[in-house]
């Protein structure tokens, strides 16, 4: 794991109807790390992810991705295509599982056997190769979540953003997805930011963990340090389940 920053955020704010929902004073995300962002519901975790995927425009502050400084203009497509998100509630297309997984590749102009091979491999990886031709809308929640992961992985993103990817899943699926996350990070060096309200998942997966409270970054530290020796009292309260939220 290098310490090159993929993202540099400075005084990044987001407001909805005059209410500040995100206010990140400073946050650097390193290339190849798994960063877990924990915090109660409504802390601004998902909003932060959307900013990292350039799906929202900040109200103020700066966001730098690799060498690109976000400004008033659009984000170059080739940069944007290095990042993808697996959302908490993935919406799949009313097509077959394979077509859903292939979608990102098709967008990038790939076609034919090449796509088929990549899709098959991805479905193997998430353990759904028996459902290749099934209609995606008929899948269970766990299966849909795995298809969403597969369709994100096939495009080989430099940054993979995961928004509660295992919420409401059974232990088998949780385990499977967590294994894939660590595998992709290890083998492909993918930078992963995972939003979770489950501190144990953060502990299991992340190199570093950050606590977000009311849109502000309370603490960010090596995961071990974060859990064993938090510097902020609110972090301490949160990891001991004493925080009321």
């Amino acid at each position: 794991m290098s310490t090159n920053s993929v993202y540099k955020l400075h005084n990044l704010t987001q407001t909805y109807n005059d209410r500040t929902v995100l206010n990140i004073e400073r946050l650097n995300i390193f290339a190849g790390e798994i960063l877990a962002i924990v915090g109660p519901s409504g802390a601004g975790k998902s909003t932060l992810l959307r900013h990292l995927n350039f799906l929202e425009r900040p109200a103020s502050g700066s966001l730098k991705f690799e060498a690109f400084h976000l400004n008033g203009e659009g984000v170059p497509l080739n940069l944007r295509r290095k990042i993808t998100t697996v959302f908490q509630n993935p919406v799949l297309l009313t097509r077959s599982v394979a077509d859903n997984v292939a979608y990102g590749l098709k967008l990038r102009g790939k076609s034919g056997d090449q796509v088929k091979q990549i899709v098959d491999d991805a479905l193997d990886l998430v353990g759904l190769n028996n459902l290749t031709h099934t209609g995606a809308r008929t899948l269970s929640g766990g299966e849909a979540q795995r298809v969403a992961l597969a369709r994100a992985l096939v495009i080989q993103p430099a940054v993979l953003l995961l928004d509660e990817p295992t919420a409401n899943l059974d232990p088998y699926n949780v385990k499977l997805i967590e294994n894939i996350i660590t595998q992709v990070n290890r083998e492909q060096g993918t930078t992963i930011v995972i939003v979770t309200h489950n501190i144990f998942q953060a502990k299991r997966l992340a190199h570093r963990t950050a606590l977000l409270l009311e849109g502000r970054l309370v603490e960010i530290a090596e995961t071990n340090t974060f859990f064993s020796n938090p510097s902020d009292s609110r972090t301490k309260a949160f990891i001991h389940g004493e925080m009321v939220y």
């Binding site: 959307r50 995927n53 799906l55 497509l77 944007r80 295509r81 990042i83 993808t84 998100t85 959302f87 509630n89 993935p90 919406v91 297309l93 979608y103 990102g104 967008l107 990038r108 369709r151 994100a152 495009i155 953003l161």
Partner: peptide, 20 residues
Amino acid sequence: PHLRRQLMSLGATPWQATVT
């Protein structure tokens, strides 16, 4: 309504997302 955001996240241009 969330589909558009997810398609954009997968690398769709606004036009590609609209067609989808």
